[in-house]
Design a protein around this nucleic acid. Sequence first.
DNA 1: CGGCGAATTGACGGACGTCAACTGCTGTGG
DNA 2: CCACAGCAGTTGACGTCCGTCAATTCGCCG
Lengths: 255, 255
Amino acid sequence: MSLEDTDLVRVRALSLFRALDSEVFTRLMRGAFLQRFPRGSQLTSQGQPDNFLFVLLDGAIELEGSSSDRESTLALLWPTATLGLASIVLDGPSLMSARTTKASLILMVPGDAFRQALGENAALGRAVAEELAGCFSGAVRSLKNCKLRTARERLISYLLAQYERQDGGSIIRLPCRKRVLASLLGMTPENLSRAFASLTPHGVEIDGATVTLRQPDALAMLARPDPMIDSDVGEGFSQAERERRRGKRLAMAAL
Amino acid sequence: MSLEDTDLVRVRALSLFRALDSEVFTRLMRGAFLQRFPRGSQLTSQGQPDNFLFVLLDGAIELEGSSSDRESTLALLWPTATLGLASIVLDGPSLMSARTTKASLILMVPGDAFRQALGENAALGRAVAEELAGCFSGAVRSLKNCKLRTARERLISYLLAQYERQDGGSIIRLPCRKRVLASLLGMTPENLSRAFASLTPHGVEIDGATVTLRQPDALAMLARPDPMIDSDVGEGFSQAERERRRGKRLAMAAL
DNA sequence: CGGCGAATTGACGGACGTCAACTGCTGTGG
DNA sequence: CCACAGCAGTTGACGTCCGTCAATTCGCCG
């Protein structure tokens, strides 16, 4: 599939590419192409070489780590996130396995062209550095989330973070199946179910993927949300994606 | 304290600075200075602004995360590691608290000068991107270590990683107090003590900070070490530091 | 309508944290 | 130089959190 203008504009607006000269940008995009993937497509496999930088334009991606037959969801990606930047920069193996959880539209940028441009262009270098610093920051927050909180606290913090982020008052739509959420939060589906049940006395009502928080303040007392952890935990490591959300919040605030 | 030539040579050899023009390097170093810190000095505090890039030339640093009166050691840094790169690049708050665990010699590079040079110099941009990609990779490995293994498996993997890394045959010297190691591995000191005890039937002998592995192969069966996790887990997120170790291993292999 | 997977619920067990007591080391000051 | 305070480490008893296994229900899609 060729690059349509509307898609190109969206890519151009990403923090990774925004500061680039038109000439460098077009050179990068010359080798790039758009691809549609059905739900469940494996994009990368942990430990395998990674030859493309992915930009998720539409759909959803699950990042998963595995070791000796155990698996865990490490993050979920939404538009407009990037994937694989660290592997491309280091020319090393993929850190995580990635697979689409919805039919997705993905821009694929060849890694070698990207690496070459990186060595030649200071603006790209800076943008990549900022993006990777954001990835690192996200991973450190996930690590703290995992080491400093119990499973129940992680669930509460997750719900409160979604509550802050989504606009619909005290009503939240879970963005993924519960078993995926459980893995993301580092627990079993059974335990997630019980944790949800234990929150009903605190004003949490669950109906399928719809969760209503009747007493968010009471929940905050149970988990002590922490801005140095909760901004965007487990919601992908991509700075571009964070920016998109920040922009959305600002746009809403302006109304 | 002023920059001595011998120290300057060590800094110049770091992957972060190696590819730089002499002119850019000297400009960066013009505002930099060396400082000695006694054991226990607080270098950064989680959430506080971070105005220096630290380069640990001598000593040791513990990185710690905290949230609502709980604390956890996230990594240990040895020479020649860098600290604070992500915060400097993003001009944001410190992600973790850092404090020296030994008397330390540290090069402090002003953050604003560094940020400015980053925007102007492609070689620096690339070096920073690589360093941060390494940091991200390290953090992701720590996250997998935490989510995919039990406490006992983390200990075994840690011992095996140290065993691979240190030269002294099957004898390991723990690089930190056991309570710090426990926190790094995500367990309590009591539990670490019990985990050690449970390994004696498998050829692990403990004498203070000295650990002897009589049957490393048997240990590997108990934990299934994984190269996509274990390279340098919890041993700092700095690429420069990893390189130093790789160099050491290569130098040893050459003997 | 039938089957499959997601989600829930219960019973059970294991891993790990907490509390307390005890030991040994270390550094410090009389 | 030694006494002693204080902390690191170990060990035991106990409780809690959470994983495992199994049974059941529900919704979805063939």
